[in-house]
Design a binder for these strands. Structure first.
Lengths: 213, 213
DNA sequence: TATCTTGCATATGTATACATGTTCTTTCAA
DNA sequence: TTGAAAGAACATGTATACATATGCAAGATA
């Protein structure tokens, strides 16, 4: 079965990493992956290079690729960077979102209040952030955030399950952000979004610290 | 001579694009480049894929790669994105730069005042921004800015030569930014840096508008 | 026993041939 | 003259063989 193309293989590997099925340090050998996917080394090779560029893979022994390990300092930088970019997007969105988009955001808030299942709350959370992201009217900055989030996702999936107390505070933070957006107060929106991202960082870092002290 | 490796070829092509020797829309054909560099298609291919990922190349007719053309709206988004990221870095730097770094920044300011040659002022300008960038203590966010700047550079090089009036206002803006950093006023630094990047955008956009109205 | 050297195992880097897909051109018919 | 269909041309996608580099292990030598 060689219906898999380079793009396809890349997506599969990304998914495996962000879903936590492939653990940091795990080797990514061209030949082995080629046999596994039923293709030659060439498309696998291309996929691995893209992984490296996306900072999801790095070089290990014998120049081999391995799933990237991140130091705790890298994690802090990563969340700080994502927080800065997403809060910038939110500040822009506060001044640029259409009336329709604002109403959609309000609706998403309502869905979040009515939802207690962590799984589907994750979905609602993604739609909340996605609505703000597209409301900023800057595709390049949005793509930049996507890149960064790909990397935070790898951590979240491996280490983080939303608990109910986090769910409650997430709701409150979302509402505060939305209110700042409705008031078209860019700077308040920026500040609130930054601290929202920071609090999700604290949880991930906390779980990590407890796990490997 | 085939001392050139994939990395080398990538760098050469990037340089050619940002320096304006390769114009937007120019085809990048694997076979032709391979012969030109004296290597096979394989390393050229890899370089082209990296160019595409860096948004410096895109697909043209017959799936061929061409040097990326940017619409004016893209340019606006790009500078806005770069402005947000760099101003975030500057805000962080205002609170994190060491005493030594602050003195270095002051020295660079002095060099800028003493310099009237646009060429070497470009150098000083790069060192000013580089000092702030590294003073922010966030390598990931700094790398993000580098990526964006690679793309703005392609425009600047093709369309922009600093004139002396711009040089004077650039000096004044740098001094204002530095003073906000010395005062450890993150928010003022952010605001000033954002408007500094925006004014360089205005110049590029202006020249562009006069060129192809 | 410690260390340096040599050789091999392993994984990526490159070259080349062939496969695939897309566009342009030519040709034939209405 | 126009339109559609077929095929040639061109460019990338993939497979495979060979080249190169790197780390590890074994053995020789001080």
């Amino acid at each position: 079965m060689s219906n898999r193309t380079a793009e396809n293989i890349f997506d599969t590997l990304v998914d495996g990493i962000v879903a936590g099925r492939m653990t940091p340090g795990e080797p990514l050998v061209e030949q082995a992956l080629a046999e596994q996917f039923g293709v030659s080394r060439t498309p696998v090779r291309e996929a691995l290079h893209r992984l490296e560029q996306a900072n999801l893979a790095e070089r290990g022994a014998r120049r081999a690729f391995v799933v990237r390990k991140m130091a705790p300092e890298d994690l802090a930088e990563l969340f700080e960077a994502a927080g800065e970019v997403e809060s910038a997007l939110a500040a822009l969105a506060a001044n640029r979102m259409s009336e329709i988009e604002r109403r959609r955001l309000e609706a998403i808030l309502g869905e979040g209040d009515a939802c207690n299942d962590p799984q589907s709350y994750g979905d609602i959370n993604a739609r909340f952030h996605g609505t703000i992201q597209s409301g900023a009217r800057n595709g390049i900055l949005a793509a930049t955030l996507d890149e960064l989030n790909l990397r935070t996702l790898a951590w979240r999936a491996a280490n983080f399950h939303e608990d109910s107390s986090r769910l409650a505070s997430s709701r409150a933070e979302h509402r505060a952000i939305a209110q700042a957006i409705f008031a078209q107060d860019g700077e308040a929106t920026r500040r609130l979004m930054r601290s929202h991202v920071a609090s999700s960082y604290i949880i991930v870092a906390d779980i990590l610290a407890k796990r490997a002290p």
